[in-house]
Design a protein around this nucleic acid. Structure first.
Length: 172
DNA sequence: GCCACCGGTGGC
DNA sequence: GCCACCGGTGGC
């Protein structure tokens, strides 16, 4: 048990902040926690997000942040299942910021990197069978926007998308 | 010996 | 061309 806590402490993921784009005014708003972000994300297509879902906020308020080069932006796919109870979905940025890697920390502190590894985990620890559904894991990684090519950046900035993002803390 | 990290690749 | 997945390894 203490092993689990130690691991978690040192095993922070690379995301520095979470934000979501309003489906009405297209402004970006911070989402305070990973848990809340994952809740918004898991059914984002059927249930898009609007400014007024944030307490005391409307579309008339200025955006929390702008989509620009001052941060490294990383766009999630919508409708990624919420991480199962007592598991945590981790996203780790590569040193060169080329891409991220996804894994989950399981309730006993073990790490899994793919659906196959989830199956192997459930074989190795059958006490979790039935409690943890293999289908609620997603190893899809977010898309890293390339800050060195502004053209690509601007192209992706057009608000046709219903995507949302994360921002890494990576300090340059 | 472990594990974080990175490179390669096969399938789409 | 992209990306999910996995093997190798270097540093601890």
């Amino acid at each position: 048990m203490s092993k689990f806590l130690e691991r978690c402490k040192g095993n922070k993921d690379s995301v520095g902040a979470y934000a979501v784009q309003c489906g009405e005014c297209s402004k970006w708003r911070f989402i305070p926690t990973k848990e809340e972000f994952e809740s918004i994300r898991h059914n984002f297509i059927e249930d898009p997000w609007y400014c007024n879902k944030k307490p005391g906020v409307t579309c008339d308020d200025p955006a929390d942040l702008e989509y620009d080069n001052t941060r490294i932006w990383v766009f999630d796919k919508p409708n990624i299942p919420k991480a199962p109870p007592n598991t945590e979905r981790m996203l780790i940025m590569r040193r060169d910021c080329s891409k991220m890697d996804a894994h989950y920390i399981m309730p006993n502190g073990k790490k899994v990197r793919s659906g196959v590894e989830v199956e192997k985990f459930l074989e190795a620890y059958p006490e979790y069978k039935g409690k943890i559904s293999p289908s609620s894991f997603s190893f899809t990684v977010p898309k890293v926007m390339d800050e060195r090519s502004p053209r690509k950046f601007e192209a992706k900035a057009s608000p046709s998308s219903n995507k949302r993002l994360k921002i890494s803390t990576k300090k340059e």
